[in-house]
Design a protein around this nucleic acid. Structure first.
Length: 257
DNA sequence: ATGGTTGCCTCGCAA
């Protein structure tokens, strides 16, 4: 069995104690991290290695930044999502490890909708759909995981009315997200829990965590070759309740050997 | 109710 988790840590430096506490408790084989908020040289590699993980990072000063941790060696494939001329954001890392093709994705937030950030998000989603189409042709077990910054349906949101008009819930964002499903990429959480209301993000503001006012925006999408091996999936709420927590919590799945 | 909170490493921006 191989356990894969994705976690937007909202600064790897601020979250290192939480991460080092969570790794031996959750025992994931592969971890996809987002929002490192540091350059590669600032990544706490010694501590991660001491915890038993190889790692690859795509860092950026102050913003964005993604990484893959693995208990087995990691072979890099891509450090940028193809198709974005001049897009220098650190939002995509594609590797091979544990016999899987795995990507750590930090999709643009897209707010405010009236700014150029929203078309950037939609273009990024279009690029992801196009790239996924090519990846699926490899007919290999594949996991596209990360912070998609998309609320797929009303079930994934404490109050859909509160999110109408937001870039995370706009029809344009959700339509593009659904194209991944249509291509044959399975949502690892929703596939096994079709009716469950569960969230992966709670805003720092307004006591959102205390009132469970969350949204599900962190997703693991599986190719047919990976989905056929899906044994379990879930969302680990415990890290969100810790001191100095990220506003996101880990989402995970297990694939049979 | 344009508030509220967190992180970065500049005195605002992104989320």
């Amino acid at each position: 069995m191989v356990k894969i988790a994705t976690w937007n840590v909202n600064s790897i430096k601020a979250r290192l104690p939480n991460l080092l506490e969570w790794l031996p408790a959750a025992r994931p084989d592969i971890v996809l991290l987002q929002e490192l908020k540091c350059q590669d040289e600032g990544f706490p590699g010694l501590e991660i290695k001491a915890a038993g993980y190889a790692y690859l990072t795509v860092g950026q000063k102050s913003y964005n930044g993604v990484a893959v941790l693995s208990t087995q060696p990691i072979v890099p494939r891509l450090t940028r999502l193809p198709g974005g001329e001049g897009d220098d954001h650190a939002r995509y890392l594609e590797v091979e490890t544990h016999g899987l093709v795995v990507s750590s994705i930090y999709l643009p937030n897209g707010n405010p909708v009236a700014s150029d950030k929203f078309p950037y998000k939609l273009a990024w989603l279009d690029r992801l759909v196009a790239h996924a189409r090519g990846l699926l042709l490899e007919e290999r077990p594949l996991v596209l995981g990360g912070d998609y910054n998309v609320i797929p349906t009303a079930l994934d949101c404490y109050d859909p009315q509160a999110w109408v008009g937001d870039a995370l819930f706009r029809p344009e964002s959700r339509a593009r997200f659904r194209q991944l499903q249509a291509l044959g990429l399975t949502d690892a959480f929703r596939a096994l829990h079709p009716d469950r209301r569960a969230y992966s993000f709670w805003d720092y503001q307004g006591g959102a965590w205390q009132h469970d006012l969350g949204i599900r925006i962190d997703h693991l999408r599986l190719s047919p070759q990976a989905a056929g091996r899906l044994a379990a999936s879930g969302i680990d709420r415990a890290p969100r309740g810790k001191e100095r927590a990220s506003d996101h919590t880990p989402v995970w799945c297990e694939l049979r050997d």
